[in-house]
Computed example of a mutant assay.
Amino acid sequence: MMMEDPQTEHQRMVRRHRREKKELQARIQGMKNSVPKNDKRRRKQLLLDVARLEAELEQKHQQELEKFQENFPDNSSLDSVAEDLAKMDLENQPPHLTRSQRRRERRAALERERLERIAEAEMEHLASFRHEEEKKLAAILGAKNLQMKDIPADGHCMYRAIQDQLVFAVTLECLRGRTAEYLRKHADDFLPFFSDPKTGDGYSLEDFMGYCDDIVRNASWGGQLELRALSHILQTPIEVIQADSPIVVIGEEYTRKPLVLVYLRYACSLGEHYNSVKPLDSCAIGGAPRLF
Protein backbone atom coordinates (compact mmCIF):
# COMPACT_ATOMS: atom_id res chain seq x y z
CA MET A 1 0.00 0.00 0.00
CA MET A 2 1.37 3.41 -0.94
CA MET A 3 1.71 5.94 1.83
CA GLU A 4 0.28 9.41 1.35
CA ASP A 5 2.77 12.09 0.40
CA PRO A 6 3.99 14.34 3.24
CA GLN A 7 2.16 17.39 1.91
CA THR A 8 -1.22 15.63 2.03
CA GLU A 9 -0.58 14.24 5.49
CA HIS A 10 0.52 17.67 6.70
CA GLN A 11 -2.61 19.33 5.32
CA ARG A 12 -4.76 16.76 7.11
CA MET A 13 -2.95 17.50 10.38
CA VAL A 14 -3.39 21.26 9.88
CA ARG A 15 -7.15 20.83 9.33
CA ARG A 16 -7.45 18.68 12.45
CA HIS A 17 -5.53 21.20 14.55
CA ARG A 18 -7.84 23.97 13.39
CA ARG A 19 -10.89 21.88 14.25
CA GLU A 20 -9.57 20.99 17.69
CA LYS A 21 -8.81 24.65 18.45
CA LYS A 22 -12.30 25.66 17.37
CA GLU A 23 -13.84 22.94 19.54
CA LEU A 24 -11.78 24.02 22.54
CA GLN A 25 -12.82 27.65 22.08
CA ALA A 26 -16.49 26.65 22.00
CA ARG A 27 -15.95 24.63 25.15
CA ILE A 28 -14.22 27.55 26.87
CA GLN A 29 -17.14 29.81 25.98
CA GLY A 30 -19.48 27.35 27.67
CA MET A 31 -17.28 27.40 30.76
CA LYS A 32 -17.33 31.21 30.82
CA ASN A 33 -21.10 31.34 30.43
CA SER A 34 -21.52 29.00 33.41
CA VAL A 35 -19.67 31.27 35.87
CA PRO A 36 -21.33 34.51 37.08
CA LYS A 37 -19.15 37.56 36.51
CA ASN A 38 -19.51 38.62 40.16
CA ASP A 39 -18.19 35.31 41.51
CA LYS A 40 -14.54 36.26 41.89
CA ARG A 41 -13.36 32.95 43.29
CA ARG A 42 -14.87 30.88 40.48
CA ARG A 43 -13.83 33.42 37.83
CA LYS A 44 -10.25 33.13 39.08
CA GLN A 45 -10.43 29.34 38.89
CA LEU A 46 -11.99 29.63 35.44
CA LEU A 47 -9.03 31.71 34.25
CA LEU A 48 -6.63 29.06 35.50
CA ASP A 49 -8.62 26.23 33.89
CA VAL A 50 -8.77 28.03 30.55
CA ALA A 51 -5.03 28.72 30.60
CA ARG A 52 -4.30 25.08 31.37
CA LEU A 53 -6.56 23.76 28.62
CA GLU A 54 -5.08 26.12 26.02
CA ALA A 55 -1.54 25.25 27.09
CA GLU A 56 -2.24 21.51 26.94
CA LEU A 57 -3.67 21.75 23.44
CA GLU A 58 -0.84 23.98 22.24
CA GLN A 59 1.73 21.54 23.65
CA LYS A 60 -0.05 18.59 22.00
CA HIS A 61 -0.07 20.30 18.62
CA GLN A 62 3.57 21.33 18.92
CA GLN A 63 4.58 17.75 19.73
CA GLU A 64 2.69 16.47 16.70
CA LEU A 65 4.38 19.03 14.48
CA GLU A 66 7.80 18.07 15.81
CA LYS A 67 7.05 14.39 15.28
CA PHE A 68 6.01 15.14 11.71
CA GLN A 69 9.31 16.90 11.09
CA GLU A 70 11.17 13.91 12.49
CA ASN A 71 9.31 11.53 10.19
CA PHE A 72 9.85 13.73 7.14
CA PRO A 73 13.14 15.54 7.74
CA ASP A 74 13.72 16.24 4.05
CA ASN A 75 10.56 18.29 3.64
CA SER A 76 12.03 21.56 4.81
CA SER A 77 9.51 23.48 2.75
CA LEU A 78 6.93 22.58 5.35
CA ASP A 79 8.86 24.15 8.22
CA SER A 80 7.50 27.64 7.68
CA VAL A 81 3.96 26.30 7.42
CA ALA A 82 4.38 24.52 10.75
CA GLU A 83 5.70 27.68 12.38
CA ASP A 84 2.80 29.72 11.03
CA LEU A 85 0.32 27.15 12.26
CA ALA A 86 1.71 27.37 15.79
CA LYS A 87 1.14 31.15 15.70
CA MET A 88 -2.28 31.00 14.13
CA ASP A 89 -5.13 32.08 16.43
CA LEU A 90 -8.33 30.19 17.11
CA GLU A 91 -10.22 32.15 14.47
CA ASN A 92 -8.22 30.50 11.65
CA GLN A 93 -6.87 33.84 10.52
CA PRO A 94 -4.16 33.86 7.83
CA PRO A 95 -0.83 32.72 9.29
CA HIS A 96 1.17 35.64 7.87
CA LEU A 97 1.55 37.86 10.94
CA THR A 98 3.03 41.32 11.18
CA ARG A 99 5.93 42.05 13.51
CA SER A 100 3.63 43.67 16.08
CA GLN A 101 1.30 40.69 15.89
CA ARG A 102 4.21 38.34 16.50
CA ARG A 103 5.19 40.39 19.55
CA ARG A 104 1.65 40.14 20.87
CA GLU A 105 1.68 36.40 20.24
CA ARG A 106 4.90 36.04 22.20
CA ARG A 107 3.51 38.10 25.08
CA ALA A 108 0.36 36.00 25.05
CA ALA A 109 2.44 32.81 25.11
CA LEU A 110 4.42 34.10 28.11
CA GLU A 111 1.20 35.01 29.88
CA ARG A 112 -0.20 31.52 29.24
CA GLU A 113 2.97 30.01 30.68
CA ARG A 114 2.66 32.23 33.76
CA LEU A 115 -0.97 31.27 34.27
CA GLU A 116 -0.10 27.62 33.77
CA ARG A 117 2.49 27.83 36.54
CA ILE A 118 -0.11 29.44 38.79
CA ALA A 119 -2.55 26.68 37.90
CA GLU A 120 -0.02 24.02 38.79
CA ALA A 121 0.63 25.71 42.12
CA GLU A 122 -3.06 25.74 42.90
CA MET A 123 -3.90 22.22 41.74
CA GLU A 124 -3.81 21.03 45.32
CA HIS A 125 -6.76 23.31 46.05
CA LEU A 126 -8.88 21.56 43.43
CA ALA A 127 -9.03 18.42 45.53
CA SER A 128 -10.64 20.36 48.37
CA PHE A 129 -13.02 22.05 45.93
CA ARG A 130 -14.07 18.64 44.61
CA HIS A 131 -14.59 17.25 48.08
CA GLU A 132 -16.70 20.23 49.12
CA GLU A 133 -18.73 20.08 45.92
CA GLU A 134 -19.42 16.36 46.30
CA LYS A 135 -20.45 16.83 49.94
CA LYS A 136 -22.95 19.56 49.05
CA LEU A 137 -24.36 17.56 46.13
CA ALA A 138 -24.74 14.46 48.28
CA ALA A 139 -26.83 16.47 50.75
CA ILE A 140 -29.03 17.96 47.99
CA LEU A 141 -29.54 14.61 46.29
CA GLY A 142 -30.04 12.79 49.59
CA ALA A 143 -33.01 15.03 50.34
CA LYS A 144 -34.50 13.75 47.08
CA ASN A 145 -33.59 10.14 47.90
CA LEU A 146 -31.11 10.18 45.04
CA GLN A 147 -27.40 9.74 44.53
CA MET A 148 -25.05 10.45 41.64
CA LYS A 149 -24.50 7.93 38.89
CA ASP A 150 -21.14 8.37 37.20
CA ILE A 151 -21.09 9.13 33.50
CA PRO A 152 -17.87 8.90 31.44
CA ALA A 153 -16.10 12.23 30.84
CA ASP A 154 -15.77 11.77 27.08
CA GLY A 155 -17.41 14.90 25.68
CA HIS A 156 -20.78 13.12 25.47
CA CYS A 157 -21.57 13.28 29.21
CA MET A 158 -24.65 15.50 28.97
CA TYR A 159 -26.21 13.36 26.26
CA ARG A 160 -25.25 10.13 28.07
CA ALA A 161 -26.86 11.40 31.28
CA ILE A 162 -30.09 12.09 29.37
CA GLN A 163 -29.85 8.73 27.62
CA ASP A 164 -29.39 6.95 30.97
CA GLN A 165 -32.73 8.20 32.30
CA LEU A 166 -34.99 7.59 29.33
CA VAL A 167 -37.42 4.68 29.60
CA PHE A 168 -36.98 3.89 25.91
CA ALA A 169 -33.83 2.92 24.05
CA VAL A 170 -32.14 5.65 22.06
CA THR A 171 -28.63 5.93 20.69
CA LEU A 172 -26.21 8.71 21.46
CA GLU A 173 -26.05 9.51 17.75
CA CYS A 174 -29.82 9.87 17.64
CA LEU A 175 -29.88 12.31 20.57
CA ARG A 176 -27.15 14.43 19.03
CA GLY A 177 -28.79 14.31 15.61
CA ARG A 178 -32.21 15.29 16.94
CA THR A 179 -30.68 18.13 18.98
CA ALA A 180 -28.85 19.55 15.96
CA GLU A 181 -31.95 19.21 13.80
CA TYR A 182 -34.11 21.07 16.34
CA LEU A 183 -31.57 23.89 16.69
CA ARG A 184 -31.38 24.29 12.91
CA LYS A 185 -35.17 24.43 12.57
CA HIS A 186 -35.42 27.00 15.36
CA ALA A 187 -32.32 29.01 14.56
CA ASP A 188 -34.12 32.32 15.09
CA ASP A 189 -34.84 31.35 18.71
CA PHE A 190 -31.34 30.14 19.55
CA LEU A 191 -29.00 32.24 17.38
CA PRO A 192 -29.16 35.35 19.65
CA PHE A 193 -27.63 33.30 22.48
CA PHE A 194 -24.52 32.28 20.51
CA SER A 195 -21.58 34.64 20.29
CA ASP A 196 -17.97 34.64 19.23
CA PRO A 197 -15.90 33.46 22.24
CA LYS A 198 -13.11 35.95 21.53
CA THR A 199 -14.93 39.13 20.50
CA GLY A 200 -18.37 38.65 22.02
CA ASP A 201 -19.94 39.44 18.64
CA GLY A 202 -22.97 37.45 17.60
CA TYR A 203 -22.48 34.42 15.39
CA SER A 204 -23.64 34.57 11.81
CA LEU A 205 -26.24 32.09 10.64
CA GLU A 206 -23.50 30.23 8.78
CA ASP A 207 -21.44 29.94 11.99
CA PHE A 208 -24.51 28.74 13.87
CA MET A 209 -25.17 26.03 11.30
CA GLY A 210 -21.54 24.98 11.57
CA TYR A 211 -21.99 24.71 15.34
CA CYS A 212 -24.99 22.44 14.74
CA ASP A 213 -22.89 20.31 12.40
CA ASP A 214 -20.28 19.93 15.16
CA ILE A 215 -22.94 18.58 17.52
CA VAL A 216 -23.35 15.63 15.16
CA ARG A 217 -19.79 15.19 13.92
CA ASN A 218 -17.71 15.78 17.05
CA ALA A 219 -17.74 15.01 20.76
CA SER A 220 -18.64 18.64 21.45
CA TRP A 221 -19.90 19.44 24.92
CA GLY A 222 -23.55 20.24 25.48
CA GLY A 223 -24.93 23.03 27.65
CA GLN A 224 -28.15 24.78 28.56
CA LEU A 225 -29.15 25.57 24.99
CA GLU A 226 -28.81 21.93 23.95
CA LEU A 227 -30.76 20.95 27.08
CA ARG A 228 -33.47 23.40 26.08
CA ALA A 229 -33.69 21.76 22.66
CA LEU A 230 -33.81 18.29 24.23
CA SER A 231 -36.58 19.29 26.63
CA HIS A 232 -38.70 20.32 23.64
CA ILE A 233 -37.79 17.18 21.69
CA LEU A 234 -38.64 14.89 24.61
CA GLN A 235 -41.57 17.05 25.84
CA THR A 236 -40.07 16.66 29.31
CA PRO A 237 -38.66 19.08 31.91
CA ILE A 238 -34.98 18.70 32.80
CA GLU A 239 -33.63 19.57 36.25
CA VAL A 240 -29.98 20.50 36.62
CA ILE A 241 -28.69 20.23 40.19
CA GLN A 242 -25.58 22.21 41.19
CA ALA A 243 -23.69 22.48 44.46
CA ASP A 244 -23.62 26.26 44.86
CA SER A 245 -26.63 27.42 42.83
CA PRO A 246 -30.37 26.85 42.86
CA ILE A 247 -31.73 23.97 40.81
CA VAL A 248 -32.25 25.02 37.20
CA VAL A 249 -35.43 23.69 35.59
CA ILE A 250 -35.53 23.69 31.80
CA GLY A 251 -38.83 23.02 30.04
CA GLU A 252 -41.11 23.93 32.95
CA GLU A 253 -44.04 24.05 30.57
CA TYR A 254 -44.08 20.25 30.35
CA THR A 255 -45.83 18.13 33.00
CA ARG A 256 -43.96 14.84 32.78
CA LYS A 257 -41.64 13.73 35.57
CA PRO A 258 -38.38 15.61 35.01
CA LEU A 259 -35.09 14.09 34.03
CA VAL A 260 -32.45 14.98 36.62
CA LEU A 261 -28.84 15.85 35.80
CA VAL A 262 -26.02 16.80 38.17
CA TYR A 263 -23.70 19.55 36.99
CA LEU A 264 -20.18 19.45 38.45
CA ARG A 265 -17.47 22.09 38.15
CA TYR A 266 -14.54 20.31 39.79
CA ALA A 267 -15.11 16.55 39.51
CA CYS A 268 -13.55 16.35 36.03
CA SER A 269 -9.99 17.55 35.48
CA LEU A 270 -10.92 18.89 32.03
CA GLY A 271 -13.66 21.18 33.29
CA GLU A 272 -17.40 20.97 33.84
CA HIS A 273 -19.15 17.61 33.72
CA TYR A 274 -22.65 16.13 33.85
CA ASN A 275 -23.62 13.02 35.80
CA SER A 276 -26.89 11.14 35.96
CA VAL A 277 -28.72 10.09 39.16
CA LYS A 278 -30.16 6.90 40.61
CA PRO A 279 -32.23 6.01 43.70
CA LEU A 280 -30.26 6.39 46.91
CA ASP A 281 -30.85 2.80 47.97
CA SER A 282 -30.31 1.19 44.54
CA CYS A 283 -26.99 -0.39 45.59
CA ALA A 284 -28.51 -1.89 48.71
CA ILE A 285 -31.53 -3.46 47.04
CA GLY A 286 -29.56 -4.53 43.98
CA GLY A 287 -31.00 -4.40 40.51
CA ALA A 288 -33.91 -2.13 41.43
CA PRO A 289 -35.98 -0.81 38.52
CA ARG A 290 -34.90 2.56 37.22
CA LEU A 291 -36.57 5.62 38.65
CA PHE A 292 -37.30 7.19 35.28
Score class of each variant (00 low, 15 high):
Asn145Arg: 13
Ile215Pro: 00
Gly210Ile: 14
Val170Phe: 06
Asp196Ile: 13
Pro152Arg: 07
Gly155Gln: 02
Ser220Glu: 07
Asp213Asn: 13
Gly222Asn: 01
Val170Trp: 03
Glu173Asp: 08
Gln163Ile: 10
Phe194Leu: 14
Leu191Cys: 07
Ile215Asn: 02
Ser195Asp: 14
Asp207Ser: 15
Gln163His: 10
Thr179Met: 02
Gly155Trp: 03
Lys198Cys: 08
Tyr182Ala: 01
Leu191Ser: 09
Arg160Gln: 13
Ser204Thr: 15
Phe168Ile: 12
Gly223Asp: 05
Leu172Gln: 06
Leu146Tyr: 10
Ala153Pro: 00
Arg178Thr: 10
Asp154Ser: 03
Gly210Asn: 15
Gln165Arg: 07
Glu226Leu: 04
Pro152His: 04
Leu146Asn: 03
Glu181His: 12
Pro197Val: 12
Glu181Gly: 04
Asp213Gln: 13
Cys157His: 04
Asp189Phe: 00
His156Ala: 05
Ala143Phe: 05
Pro192Val: 04
Asn145Val: 05
Val170Leu: 07
Leu225Pro: 03
Asn218Pro: 00
Pro152Trp: 00
Asp150His: 08
Met209Ile: 14
Asp164Ile: 03
Pro152Glu: 06
Ile215Phe: 00
Asp150Pro: 10
Phe190Thr: 00
Ala143Glu: 02
Asp164His: 10
Ala161Arg: 01
Cys174Ile: 06
Val216Asp: 08
Gln163Cys: 08
Gly210Val: 13
Leu183Gln: 11
Leu175Ile: 05
Phe194Asn: 10
Leu183Ala: 06
Leu166Met: 07
Pro192Thr: 03
Pro152Ile: 08
Leu191Met: 11
Val216Phe: 01
Ala180Asp: 05
Gln147Phe: 03
Ile151Phe: 07
Ile162Gln: 02
Lys198Phe: 11
Asp189Leu: 00
Lys144Ala: 08
Phe208Ser: 12
Gly155His: 02
His156Lys: 06
Cys157Val: 02
Pro192Gly: 03
Arg184His: 11
Gln163Asp: 11
Arg184Gln: 13
Val216Leu: 09
Glu181Tyr: 05
Ala219Thr: 09
Ala161Met: 03
Arg178Ile: 08
Asp196Val: 12
